[in-house]
Simulated scan of single mutants.
Amino acid sequence: MSLYRLNRLFNPKSGRALDVAVDHGFFGEPSFITGIEDMSAVVDTLVDANPDAIQLTLGQARHLQAKPGKAKPALVMRTDVANVYGNPLDSHIFSHHVPFAIEEAVRLDAVAVCVNLMHLPGRPEIREANIISIMALREQATRYGMPLMIEPLVMQDNAKAGGGYMVDGDTAKIVTLVRQAKELGADLIKADPTDDITDYHKVITVAGDVPVLVRGGGRVDDRTLLERTVAVLEQGAQGIVYGRNVIQHENPAGITAALMAVLHDGASVDDALALVGGGAA
Rank of each mutant, 00 (worst) to 15 (best):
R5E: 02
L6A: 08
R8S: 03
F10G: 03
A21E: 13
A21I: 07
A21V: 08
F26H: 02
F27L: 02
G28W: 01
E29Y: 10
P30W: 10
I33F: 02
T34G: 02
Q55A: 09
L56V: 04
P68E: 13
V76E: 11
V76K: 11
A82S: 01
L89P: 06
H96P: 00
V98S: 03
F100M: 11
F100N: 05
R107I: 12
L108P: 00
A110E: 12
A112I: 13
C114L: 05
L117A: 09
R123C: 04
E125H: 06
I126T: 04
I126Y: 15
Y144T: 08
G145K: 12
L148M: 12
P152Y: 09
L153F: 15
V154R: 05
Q156V: 00
Q156W: 04
Q156N: 04
K160E: 08
A161P: 03
G162H: 09
D168P: 02
A172H: 09
T176C: 07
K182P: 00
E183S: 13
D187F: 10
L188S: 05
P193S: 04
T198W: 07
D199F: 07
Y200N: 09
T205R: 10
L213C: 08
R215Y: 02
G218W: 00
R219D: 02
T224N: 08
L225Y: 04
E227I: 15
E234H: 07
G239K: 03
G239T: 00
V241D: 15
R244G: 13
R244V: 03
I247A: 11
Q248C: 13
A253K: 15
I255Q: 06
T256V: 15
M260Y: 01
M260G: 00
G266S: 02
D271E: 12
L273D: 10
A274H: 04
G279E: 08
